[in-house]
């Protein structure tokens, strides 16, 4: 097991006006592992992810990346560190092809002209490294791709830039059985390729299928972060729904502190 987390958060607080959404949250993600982030609706998963990605500023707390304290004030700074987020809506342009989407906003150029050949090579290499074989041509328009293929393109876009941490927001929510299996396999492969993967999911089957660790949020507090092999399905469900499960989790859930 890697000793030092690639990404670590300590004592994170985040409020929107008078409403405190995150209380003293601690969270870690390791290189080569899939960390599942679970929690009920409104538990603060999306807020936490947006804090990690620089969309939201944090009110209090420490942010470590590769062991060094960092400030992440914008999505651009997060991207510069090597943190990429694949949002649920994927943010792909239907009217562009796969290569064009993967390089959107960061096109390779030679002089004034787009360097299509280099972009095509890099895109093909990235898709190869992820063992993606389901797309016919990387010059296909995204509009002609299935949901799973789109998810694949969005993920490939995130790992194209030598990123170190990839955050996936409900990647399988809209997919059928076969495509879910495919995307989960891809998620596993990302971790095996040496990335830190953070997977937000509501689906316990998915979580247990691919994750190494599970972090459960409950009403804005981190109920527990445990190794997947140490807990059962029902324990995780308990952590999500009541914040505790026996010895695990928040001991005084409605108290001032955990």
């Amino acid at each position: 097991m890697p000793s030092q987390p690639v990404l670590e958060i300590r004592g994170l607080d985040k409020s929107f006006g008078p409403v405190q959404v995150l209380h003293d949250v601690a969270f870690t993600a390791y290189t080569g592992e899939v960390t599942a982030l679970v929690g009920d609706n409104g538990a603060g998963k999306s807020t936490l992810v947006k804090c990690l990605g620089g969309t939201y500023s944090i009110d209090a707390g420490e942010y470590f990346f590769d062991g060094k304290p960092v400030q992440v004030a914008s999505p651009r700074e997060a991207a510069d560190l090597g943190i990429e987020i694949v949002y649920q809506d994927l943010a792909l342009c239907d009217n562009l092809d796969i290569v064009q989407n993967m390089f959107l906003g960061r096109e390779k150029k030679s002089g004034l002209v787009l360097d299509e050949a280099t972009m095509e090579e890099m895109a093909a290499k990235t898709l190869d490294s992820l063992s993606v074989r389901t797309v016919k041509s990387i010059r296909q328009l995204v509009s002609s791709l299935s949901g799973g293929q789109r998810q694949t393109v969005a993920i490939a876009k995130a790992v194209l830039w030598n990123s170190k941490v990839v955050i996936l927001d409900e990647p399988t929510a809209a997919l059928g059985v076969a495509q879910t299996a495919q995307v989960l396999e891809l998620v596993r492969r990302l971790a095996d390729n040496g990335l830190g993967v953070i997977l937000i999911s509501h689906n316990m089957n998915d979580v247990f299928a691919v994750s190494d660790r599970i972090a459960a949020l409950y009403l804005g507090r981190m109920a527990a972060q445990v190794k997947t092999s140490d807990v059962t399905h029902s324990q995780v469900v308990e952590l999500i729904t009541s914040g505790r499960s026996g010895e695990l989790g928040l001991q005084k859930v409605n108290g001032v502190t955990a």
């Binding site: 999505p75 651009r76 342009c93 009217n95 064009q100 906003g105 004034l112 787009l114």
Partner: peptide, 24 residues
């Protein structure tokens, strides 16, 4: 067809929000 500017025109027309997130 051959410049980043042109590519961004298509991108904004296809999905303005995605383009914004891509830093365009």
């Amino acid at each position: 067809r051959r410049t980043a500017f042109g590519r961004h025109i298509y991108a904004v027309g296809g999905n303005a929000e995605a383009s914004r997130r891509a830093g365009i």
